[in-house]
């Protein structure tokens, strides 16, 4: 009796092991080499990390599920490069946890949206897309301007990202909340710290037009304006050799 039972067990466990072997090899072969990251991804020495305000904006982009309609990945195809700009490089999303390459363009690609339009355009467009683009089918995000940005836990966000490999320094983590305010309040005492920590090229603006407070609109526009601008690697690549 025990003998027979043991045999049956062995059969089903054997099946399980065979399934695991058959199904795992493909994933391992394709994924493992990508973890020799320094060799998969181009060099971009000047690349900076997201500021706390941009990161908060990115988290709003994640929260609202923007990836469902907007890609952030320009493919190496002529028409895409001419429509959107230089094709995307792996290095450009090296600090993106998660990546937001997307899979569908119900709306246009956003990989080169940074700097393409003014802050006012973005605010008006997010308030009601059809005020700016009459045929748009994007939802209105007017509640962003009405909603104060939650900043109290930003240091924890930076810490979590540091743990998964984003090179935030201790002072960036410590000053995360101040920097979020500083970036949206030009000419304030806090603004200088942002430049010190994240570089001269960092946008210090009242993104939503109101320097007095930091809204979710500030954060999202700050993020949109930095997409594709953390490094110039893609633009340099374009001048040295054309796509296709």
């Amino acid at each position: 009796m025990f003998q027979a039972h043991y045999k049956l067990e062995r059969y089903s466990v054997g099946l399980v092991i065979a399934i695991i072997i058959a199904a795992s090899i493909g994933g391992i072969v394709e994924i493992a080499p990508l973890f020799t990251i320094d060799q998969t991804v181009e060099e971009a020495p000047g690349m900076r990390v997201y500021t706390p305000l941009e990161l908060a904006g990115r988290n709003i982009y994640v929260r609202e599920g923007c990836y469902a309609c907007h890609s952030q990945m320009i493919r190496t195809l002529r028409d895409e490069v001419e429509r959107y700009g230089p094709y995307s490089l792996a290095v450009e999303s090296q600090y993106d946890h998660p990546m937001l390459w997307g899979s569908k363009r119900t709306g246009p690609d956003l990989a080169r949206i940074g700097g393409k339009y003014s802050d006012q355009w973005h605010v008006a467009h997010l308030e009601n897309p059809r005020d700016v683009v009459p045929a748009s089918i994007m939802p209105a995000y007017s509640f962003l301007a009405r909603t104060q940005l939650r900043t109290d836990d930003l240091s924890m966000h930076l810490t979590a990202l540091k743990k998964v490999g984003v090179p935030y320094t201790d002072s960036m983590i410590e000053k995360a909340v101040e920097d979020a305010y500083g970036q949206a309040a030009p000419f304030s005492a806090l603004a200088d710290g942002v430049v010190t920590r994240y570089g001269d090229a960092t946008h210090i603006r009242a993104f939503d037009g109101d320097p007095g407070s930091v809204s979710e609109m500030d954060a999202l526009v700050a993020y949109l304006q930095i997409i594709g601008r953390l490094t110039d690697a893609a633009h340099e690549q374009k001048s040295s050799g054309d796509a296709e």
Binding site: I25, G26, V29, P33, T36, D38, Q39, T40, V41, E42
Partner: peptide, 21 residues
């Protein structure tokens, strides 16, 4: 951008995968 470590992994993946198949 392709260091030796990466190339070895890639070569291994490509050849060994075929035998396995």
């Amino acid at each position: 951008m392709n260091g030796p470590e990466h190339d070895i992994l890639v070569a291994f993946a490509k050849s060994w995968g075929l035998f396995y198949l």
